[in-house]
């Protein structure tokens, strides 16, 4: 049995209570959500916080998925499993279900949360890639109120985010745009393993042309990052295999993988290309499959 160092523990009863505790205890305290990243690090003694503030009782307050016409809002305590099972979410953003199917295993998904995933800021983290792909905004709350940052602002480096010591992530907000769909592709060495490389894509069509598109990659750089060059190359073009290929090549060019036990940098670069193509292709297929229904829906809007 791997055992952590001594730690004080308190359960927060509300977001304000949690923030109050963070303010009082300062940098020696850490929030624990699902615990699936933090506890393994504590057991390996890679992390030894003096205080743990358990926010699982805030699931009532922060565990939700609200799908509104222009925006989807997801609470930070929403569990992987809830993201996986939400039909409403899969309807607007099928990328979530694609990703959740291949994140960890059911035991981890039962507890692990959206907030914990994003705040862990692991460069291989899948939900971060999903949120990057969808251009999500992060709502951070502290003693003096809330602020909203983009994913680009949120990530400051590997394992480092814009969330300050006495703050917490409470929600992410994702804009909903018409005639769009999304997809997620991941290659792993084994089910439940972290990605060798993952790629998310989101595409919005207008009259058969790409109105906008975004691609987000995981495990090929210091953070999951959007690829503006890919978006620029896709906008205004008609979807085609040739175009996906170009986009894939751009994705491969614009990432910075390193060789490790999961694979060589060369192979990862190849995957960035291959998976970008696949995710774009699947996104467009999904829009077209929904075509008739979505068309009506869009006209009504």
């Amino acid at each position: 049995m791997q055992v952590p160092a001594p730690v004080e523990y308190e359960r927060a009863t509300s977001v304000d209570h949690a923030i109050g505790l963070l303010e009082r205890l300062g940098g020696s305290a850490r929030l624990v959500a699902g615990g699936h990243s933090l506890l393994p690090m504590m057991k390996l003694r890679l992390a030894s916080p003096e205080y743990l503030i358990d926010i699982n009782d805030l699931h009532g307050e922060l565990g939700y998925i609200r799908v509104e016409p222009d925006e989807v809002r997801i609470g930070a305590m929403t569990r992987h499993r809830e993201l996986l099972e939400s039909g409403e979410l899969a309807e607007v953003f099928p990328i979530f279900r694609d990703a959740e199917r291949v994140i960890a295993d059911p035991v981890v998904r039962n507890r692990g949360t959206l907030g914990g995933s994003l705040c862990q800021a692991d460069p291989s983290e899948d939900l971060s890639a999903v949120c990057t792909t969808l251009g999500a905004n992060c709502v951070i709350r502290g003693g003096s109120g809330e602020r909203v940052v983009t994913m680009e602002e949120f990530y400051r480096g590997p394992y480092e985010t814009a969330v300050e010591d006495a703050e917490m992530l409470v929600e992410i907000r994702i804009p909903v745009r018409p005639s769009g769909s999304s997809a997620y592709e991941k290659v792993e060495r084994r089910a439940g393993d972290w990605a060798i490389v993952s790629a998310g894509a989101a595409v919005w069509l207008d009259g058969g042309l790409i109105a906008d598109a975004r691609v987000g990659l995981a495990a090929v750089g210091p953070n999951t990052a959007g690829l503006p060059a890919v978006s620029d190359a896709l906008r205004g073009r008609e979807p085609s295999e040739e175009l996906y290929k170009q986009a894939g090549a751009l994705a491969a060019e614009n990432c910075s993988p390193v060789t490790d036990m999961r694979g060589s940098a060369e192979y990862k670069r190849h995957l960035a290309e291959e998976l970008t193509r696949r995710a774009l292709r699947r996104s467009v297929v999904r829009i077209n499959e929904r075509g008739w229904h979505a068309g009506i829906h869009d006209r009504q809007r």
Partner: peptide
């Protein structure tokens, strides 16, 4: 397909946990 206890050039073991040393599951 997946198992190996590898070492880096300094002799550090790279297979020290079941996240690094993979063993197959029912899905494989």
């Amino acid at each position: 397909l997946m198992e190996m206890i590898a070492f880096d050039e300094d002799g550090n073991c790279l297979g020290g946990s079941l996240m690094d040393y993979l063993i197959p599951t029912a899905l494989e």
